[in-house]
């Protein structure tokens, strides 16, 4: 059962490619399904509005799908890009690239569905505000794609940086861990950013004149929500570019893999939680725009405390990397 590593690299790049496009499609489809369900509820009591609601859905979906297209580009590069480097490490790099691109597209795909659904609801309730609501929805879903772009960057680095001079034994885990860290840590912030964007759309539909405070609060809220994705990105960069000595035991390898898992999973919960906080805060900003400063402050304090578990994950991941 001994294959040469060219076979392994081929197998790994096909697997990575499948994971990338599969996860990407599932995420975007979940988001679209959510949007369609909500839009249908709105249509039930606003049948006349179907043209406007379909237009909002179409716009939202076309923007939300960029996450899936990013994953598709990575996936096609893995299969048809002629990457087959001769080093055994390439197999792990390609698997990590597929995981980073695919997993990070899940969060952004699901997350972009929430603003689109909220925009359909909002337009059904307040048809006059459709221009403002669509603009807020577009801004919200565009920023929600940021974690996906982190995944894309890590995938490119994994595919195109030359790791051939590195020792195989802890580096296989560093490359896989880099993919997992960014990919998993992007899921939570992607979905959470979508929750914030959705509440912003609802708020603008309720009070179109409060567009400015709502936009500011939404930008702050999504920005804070994405901090755990930034931590994941940071851990990936350290895993990729810190030099680890060659070793003859499994201990450093598993420490690096553990660092990837710690930061990856650790980014999910705080991301979603901060998104929930931002969502409730933005609902209230839309209700009483004159209290926007107080609400933004409370939201920031709440988000900062919710982020502590993400910071603990970062500390554990860094300790694992530095002691490897």
């Amino acid at each position: 059962m001994a294959f040469d590593h060219v076979t392994w690299i081929k197998a790994a790049s096909y697997l990575g490619s499948g994971l990338a496009v599969g996860f990407g499609a599932i995420g975007a489809a979940l988001g679209e399904g959510y949007t369609a369900g909500k839009a249908n509820q709105v249509l039930a009591y606003r049948p006349r509005m179907s043209g406007d609601i379909l237009k909002t859905m179409l716009v939202g979906q076309a923007v939300a799908e960029s996450a899936a297209i990013f994953a598709l580009v990575i996936s096609m590069l893995l299969v048809f890009g002629g990457l087959g480097g001769p080093t055994p490490l390439s197999a792990w790099a390609y698997l990590g690239a597929g995981l980073a691109a695919g997993l990070s597209a899940v969060g952004s795909g699901v997350g972009s569905g929430f603003p689109a659904a909220a925009a359909c609801e909002g337009i059904g309730r307040q048809p006059k505000a459709s221009g403002q609501v669509t603009l807020i929805m577009l801004i919200g879903s565009a920023i929600t794609q940021t974690p996906c772009i982190f995944g894309l960057v890590i995938a490119f680095l994994l595919m195109f940086v030359d790791f051939s001079a590195k020792p195989y034994y802890p580096y296989w885990a560093a490359l896989l861990g880099a993919g997992l860290s960014t990919g998993l840590a992007a899921i939570g912030p992607g979905a959470g950013g979508g929750l914030v964007g959705a509440s912003a759309c609802k708020s603008v539909a309720r009070h179109p004149e409060a567009q400015r405070p709502v936009t500011t609060a939404m930008l702050v809220g999504i920005g804070t929500t994405q901090s755990t994705a930034i931590y994941g990105f940071l851990i990936s960069l350290i895993l990729l570019f810190k030099s680890f000595p060659a070793s003859t035991s499994y201990v450093p390898s598993f420490a690096l893999l553990g660092a990837g898992f710690a930061m990856g999973f650790g980014g999910i919960g705080p991301g979603i939680g901060e998104g929930i906080t931002g969502g409730y805060a933005l609902d209230q900003v839309g209700r009483i725009p004159e209290k926007a400063t107080l609400l933004t402050r409370t939201m920031l304090v709440g988000q900062a405390v919710s982020e502590s578990t993400g910071i603990y994950s970062l500390v554990v991941a860094l300790l694992l990397v530095l002691n490897a």
Partner: peptide, 12 residues
Amino acid sequence: GANRTRATGIAL
């Protein structure tokens, strides 16, 4: 209809 599972299936 509002059946989210079917909508997700069609979307997929």
